[in-house]
Design a protein around this nucleic acid. Sequence first.
DNA 1: GCGACTGTTGACGTTGACGTAAGGGGCATA
DNA 2: TATGCCCCTTACGTCAACGTCAACAGTCGC
Lengths: 160, 160
Amino acid sequence: MPTDLRRPERTFTIRQLCTEFKATPRALRFYEDKGLLTPARDGMNRVYSYKDRARLILILRGKRVGLSLQEIREILELYGEHDEAMTQNAHSLKKFREKIVDLEQQREDIEGAINELRTACERLEKHLAEKRPDLLPKAADYDQMLRARLDGHPELLGAK
Amino acid sequence: MPTDLRRPERTFTIRQLCTEFKATPRALRFYEDKGLLTPARDGMNRVYSYKDRARLILILRGKRVGLSLQEIREILELYGEHDEAMTQNAHSLKKFREKIVDLEQQREDIEGAINELRTACERLEKHLAEKRPDLLPKAADYDQMLRARLDGHPELLGAK
DNA sequence: GCGACTGTTGACGTTGACGTAAGGGGCATA
DNA sequence: TATGCCCCTTACGTCAACGTCAACAGTCGC
């Protein structure tokens, strides 16, 4: 399939990306300032390519897992130049390995935190059910919240 | 086993807890300022009980998963008074549910990030092996790093 | 030609989570 | 008695990641 391979020539305005990913123009410009994004220009205006959009997705995901913009930039740089400062890359490799260990630890932590929150919720629910059943929120709320998350952006759920 | 049940009367100085958990005195005092810890006093000096230590563990774990001190305090308060402002607790329940959804999303993100870092590492390793095998770090480093994490603080690995 | 909208570049403000420096007390060891 | 070391409080400084605001430019529809 030579044509339509990921809509290569498609471009985006800053606001399009912002509304798509619930970011702000200020944030995107900030990322650019920090070297994480380098959109083209049409006169003054920024023009984001499909690749820029992909980078933005990685940036936002990195943020959600607690990486700093600095760390995210290092990762992004890996997907660019391949024949540059090798010493630098050896350093990156080490840092990435450390980060993996970090993240595995963090995953453990999250499991623990989820469990704690769950039991805390159960306690609270039981307590409320006994004393103030009128205050109990409906299960529908939770459902709706979940659905809202899954809507619209399947690419945020672990896609490449 | 009535005696020695979790060494009940054991206490700690601020520095002991700091070195044990790699925190700083400033941080512990800060947590106290924000109402997350309330150690006893011996004159001016803080005296941390075993319970305080347990709370500190929860605080640090909360931080690692990205909870704000404010959120952590809410969770900790749940393990205390049980007959207080019920309206407040209904609110907490809602926030906890939201946080669980957040954390589940975050866990997904971490899975993805780990995978990306792994493939990035593989790439880099391959690239380095071809062009600059002298810069390749030894696998032993990684091992040692892992062991260092697991040492000393088994209670950090998801215990209650 | 005129809003309304969207875009731009500074520059300053804000929030959370501490760091750091200043000033002082308590106790032990040299 | 002086020198450390650890503790305390108060207060100002810092850093990341933006938010907010000002001041201005391009373009669309009428």
